[in-house]
Design a protein around this nucleic acid. Structure first.
Lengths: 143, 143
DNA sequence: ATACTTATGAAAATGATTTTCATTATCATG
DNA sequence: CATGATAATGAAAATCATTTTCATAAGTAT
């Protein structure tokens, strides 16, 4: 989904909820929609402050909560104590592999796994709509 | 794996690390190994305090860290801000498939998927230690 | 028993996130 | 376009889970 489309969704969500549109919120969302990693709040705040140093971290927290609420961001905890926010990918879906020592996160796709998943589900009478797959282990550097 | 076997593993882990065995730690581990849900530290502490009110929460934290380290517990975050600990199931590992309509949860096992996972990880330079796989969809009754 | 080291419990510290509060900005309406 | 009601902001304080500190109390090898 494009950034433009996401901004539209946000706008209409704000309208339906009777909220007000603000420059800070729009800018935080805009910066976030440009990311393609699992960004922590701290990192996002740093990015945002480059142009708008006056912004407070509470506002960033509030904005990310809003984006999570309306489905434009996915909040994930990988076990290092910090929530990371994932921007919906432009094209399709991916899974994660996380280093339990250095917290490095890689993304991967595997058609065969996806296929096996729906097959396994079918045997149990289920139709798969979505899934979450996270692998935990040691990366090359930490092995 | 039986509770007894887990206690043995813990004991040998403690020995190899040059740690000392204590009544508190043993008791916390024993109580934890009897659980079969995703228990929070608070809940575990409450259970433990029924018999040993003098125990401090720091000790429970320390013990769960130890159990997690030696693979006898799995720490999970479901997004409510609290870490939950999963006791290794009696019989091997399983994943979950969840109906998004009626919330039914089934467990399943699939060797092929596990194999593909470690293969995929290897290509990325990772060694897999554990994983989380959750399928979401409609069960037979809700399709 | 002794000496050395680890474990414990209570309290303090930490770090991420949330809330409070005074002030400012938005927006529908007159 | 002024107004009034209400939401949003930023800074600071509060909260909550978790970790660390520190003095004291075991555990263990000798």
């Amino acid at each position: 989904m494009s950034t433009l489309k996401k901004m539209e969704i946000l706008k209409s969500y704000i309208e339906t909820k009777g909220l007000k549109s603000t420059a800070q919120r729009d800018y935080i969302a805009e910066v976030f929609f440009k990311t393609n990693t699992h960004i922590s709040l701290e990192e996002l705040l740093k990015k945002v402050k480059r142009k708008t140093p006056a912004i407070g971290y509470a506002t960033v927290y509030r904005t990310m909560k809003l984006l999570t609420e309306c489905g434009l961001a996915i909040a994930r905890q990988f076990g290092d104590g910090q929530t990371r926010y994932e921007n919906l990918p432009e094209h399709g879906h991916h899974d994660h592999i996380i280093c339990i020592k250095c917290s490095k996160i890689l993304e991967f796709q595997n058609e065969k796994i996806e296929h096996l998943q729906s097959e396994t589900a079918k045997k149990l009478g289920f139709t798969v709509i979505s899934h979450k797959l996270e692998l935990y282990g040691y990366c090359a550097g930490c092995a």
